[in-house]
């Protein structure tokens, strides 16, 4: 078997919040194979971004982390200074939701893009410029020479996000972490940016962790989709069968919550509100909102196990298969 690009095993993260430690991730395990795209979906506070930040080792000081994060077989969590720098520069690249917050507003696009390439000292300024111009062309930005002289505020959100994609690809990383890269964009711009990202990723056989709250978007550009709730991975399965074969009541509930495009039917929402990882009960994290909850669910946390070729953390997965519905669930007060 080939070594996965990324293998997270039993990752548990706590962050200090006012004098006490709060859990943000409970026992997260995930793998991403070479050139595979894994979608990571969930609502706010579910731990999607925390997972990405853990991989980059960008958690706030005082965070306590256990488990392993293997990048091409090497544990990121125990990397020393030089190895960590090399991993962040060459191994992995990240694209964020808000590009404006991650680019220096007083430096030109050209400075921003060539900075990393020039850092080695092995490339001349002219070579770096040429490389950057061809990258901008690949992300669909014509007139690259003029763009290089411009400042971030002169570019629209969609263009700036393409610049970020170009920057992420400039060091030829093996793993791309994309954290809600199109959430702040208009829907037509989102389509354009996603198409570019998808095409470049496939051409370069890049592995990707694609974080989003949009299940349909995740399914469209990923090979597999993992769903998170309250800091726990509750299901992982093929993206192509996400809509038809999902097993966990939460995944099914999320799919049913979204108004279906092309048909006007009353939504069947999941009752209640999403909880934080730090509020998770000892049993199943979804127990409080689940119409199929049993005593066992409340006392014993289900582990992620294989059912019908998918991974699911639900005690009743086999028994509920294909029958889950929130139609009769009490709407919340």
């Amino acid at each position: 078997m080939t070594t996965p690009v990324l293998a997270i095993e039993h990752l548990h993260v706590e962050l200090p919040v006012r004098a006490e430690m709060r859990t943000v991730l409970h026992d997260v395990s995930l793998t991403i194979g070479p050139s595979e795209a894994l979608g990571l979906v969930g609502e706010s506070g579910s731990g999607k971004s925390m997972t990405a930040r853990s991989i980059m080792r960008l958690l706030s000081p005082g965070a306590s982390t256990t488990g392993t994060i293997l990048f091409e077989g090497v544990d990121v969590l125990t990397m020393h200074h030089d190895a960590l720098l090399a991993f962040r520069r060459k191994g992995v690249a990240m694209i964020y939701q808000d590009p404006r917050a991650h680019i220096n507003p007083v430096r030109t696009i050209g400075d921003f893009l060539t900075e990393g390439i020039l850092l080695d000292g092995s490339v001349s300024t002219a070579e770096a410029q040429a490389k950057v111009i061809s990258l901008l062309d690949e992300v669909g930005i014509p007139d690259a020479k003029r763009r290089l002289r411009q400042y971030p505020h002169q570019l629209s959100g969609g263009l700036l996000q393409r610049v970020m994609i170009a920057a992420a690809l400039s060091e030829e990383p093996r793993l791309l972490l994309a954290d809600e890269p199109t959430t702040a964009l208009d829907v037509t711009t989102q389509e354009e940016v996603m198409a570019i990202l998808d095409q470049l990723r496939v051409e370069r056989s890049l592995a990707m962790l694609f974080i989003t709250h949009d299940l349909d978007l995740a399914a469209a550009v990923s090979d597999r989709v993992a769903a998170m709730y309250a800091g726990v991975i509750i299901e992982v399965g093929d993206a192509a069968s996400l809509h038809t074969d999902s097993l966990h009541p939460y995944t099914v509930g999320l799919l049913d919550s979204r108004p279906e495009f092309g048909a006007r039917v009353r939504a069947r929402p999941i009752p209640g509100r999403p909880i934080l990882a730090s509020e998770a009960p000892p049993g199943c994290v979804f127990a409080e909102r689940c119409p199929y909850v049993t005593e066992r669910c409340r006392s014993e946390r289900p582990i992620l196990r294989e059912v019908d070729g998918r991974l699911v953390a639900c005690h009743r997965a086999e028994e509920l298969r294909g029958t889950i519905s929130f139609a009769g669930a009490q709407e919340p007060r």
Binding site: G140, I141, P142, D143, S156, G158, L159, V187, T188, T189, Q190, E191, E192, M194, A195, I196, D198, Q199, D214, D216, L217, A219, A220, V221, H243, F261, G262
Partner: peptide, 20 residues
């Protein structure tokens, strides 16, 4: 606008170069 809405079976498409 409608074509850009993600849904089951949808794939993002690159359109003619438009600069926004």
């Amino acid at each position: 606008l409608i074509a850009a809405v993600p849904r089951p079976g949808w794939r993002p498409q690159r359109h003619a170069r438009t600069v926004d």
